[in-house]
Simulated assay, not measured.
Amino acid sequence: MVAAAVGGIAAPASAAAAAPQAPSSPPPLTTSRTIDAFDWKNATLDTPWTRARLRDGLRCPSGRVTFREVAPDESDYGQVIRGRATLLVRKVDTADVNRDGRPDVLVHFLCQRTNKDVGYSWYYVYTFTKVRGYHGSFKGYRPQVLDFVTSSDFASNGRWNITAIDARRGGVDVEQWVRARRSFTVDRTFRWTERWGLVPNRPLPIHPEADRAPR
């Protein structure tokens, strides 16, 4: 009985006293000294969604992510891979979309099953805010979501797709293709409003869900 009791006490004291490790802090969000110099392909950003999923149920990377350039000097995209999902980002265009006198950026996110032709493209407009450091000193500019625009169903049997998209002062112009018995293209304009943000002049026929932002 004594031997059994001693054996039970003989566990290493260091193991019993070990404290749980504190979770590592997330990397800081990326800033840049000028708006034009912001490097989207190598940026740390908070995604505009929390639980976005593909048509087959795969969950897209979300939260704070750090992109890395796909191929230096050969690609416009940065990417991050989590599990079986790949998220890519690309700067598309620059214009004063909300008419505040400062440039805004049209940004393309593509979430897909890694190495598979299954995914969604989401387009957002970002504005930039000034970041202050100690004693109010200027630290840089940081992107902030201005509004969601629209999307593409990125798949070999995709139901709708963006064939052209351009930002301009006061809005975003989009040409979208829609699959139907006789497929067709639609020209739409998303105009900026102070109350409602970007508002399309018409919904996308057959698939109005194209204008629904991932959650």
Rank of each mutant, 00 (worst) to 15 (best):
G101K: 07
V80A: 08
R82N: 07
V65F: 08
T94M: 10
T94K: 04
F109I: 08
L87P: 01
I81K: 14
H108F: 12
L88F: 11
A85I: 05
L87T: 03
V70P: 00
D104H: 09
T94S: 12
H108R: 15
F109N: 04
D96E: 03
L106P: 02
Q79F: 05
I81E: 12
V107M: 05
Q79G: 05
K91Y: 00
Y77N: 04
Y77D: 04
V80R: 01
D96L: 03
D76K: 13
R99M: 11
P72M: 10
F109H: 11
L87Q: 04
S75W: 08
F109M: 06
L88H: 03
V92F: 06
V65A: 04
E69S: 15
V65T: 10
E74T: 08
K91S: 10
R99K: 14
A95D: 04
T86S: 13
V97P: 00
A71I: 01
D76M: 12
D73V: 08
V70I: 14
D93E: 12
G78R: 01
D73I: 06
R99Q: 14
D104S: 10
G83W: 11
L87E: 03
V65P: 01
F109Q: 03
R82D: 05
V97C: 07
V89E: 02
L88C: 06
G83I: 07
T86Y: 00
L87R: 03
E69G: 11
Q79L: 12
D76R: 13
G78I: 07
P72L: 08
R84P: 01
L106D: 06
V70R: 13
L87A: 04
P72R: 10
I81Q: 13
F109V: 05
G101R: 09
A85L: 02
R68D: 13
D100L: 07
T94Y: 00
V107G: 02
N98Y: 08
V105H: 14
L88R: 11
H108C: 07
D104Y: 09
L88I: 01
I81G: 00
T66C: 04
V105P: 00
D93S: 15
T94P: 00
E69C: 10
F67M: 10
V89F: 03
Q79I: 00
R99N: 13
A85F: 00
V89W: 00
E69M: 05
L88K: 10
A85Y: 00
G78F: 01
R82S: 10
V80G: 06
S75M: 08
T66A: 13
L106E: 02
H108V: 00
R82Q: 15
A71M: 09
V92E: 15
P72W: 11
D73H: 12
R99E: 11
L87V: 06
Q79S: 14
D73Y: 09
L110F: 12
P103S: 11
R84F: 10
T94N: 02
T66L: 04
K91Q: 11
P72G: 10
T94A: 07
R84I: 11
L106H: 09
D96R: 05
Y77A: 05
R90Q: 15
D76V: 04
Y77W: 12
Q79A: 14
G101F: 04
D93R: 05
N98Q: 09
K91G: 07
T86K: 06
R68Q: 15
R102M: 13
G83Q: 03
R68P: 02
R90I: 05
L106Y: 08
D76F: 11
D93N: 12
T66S: 15
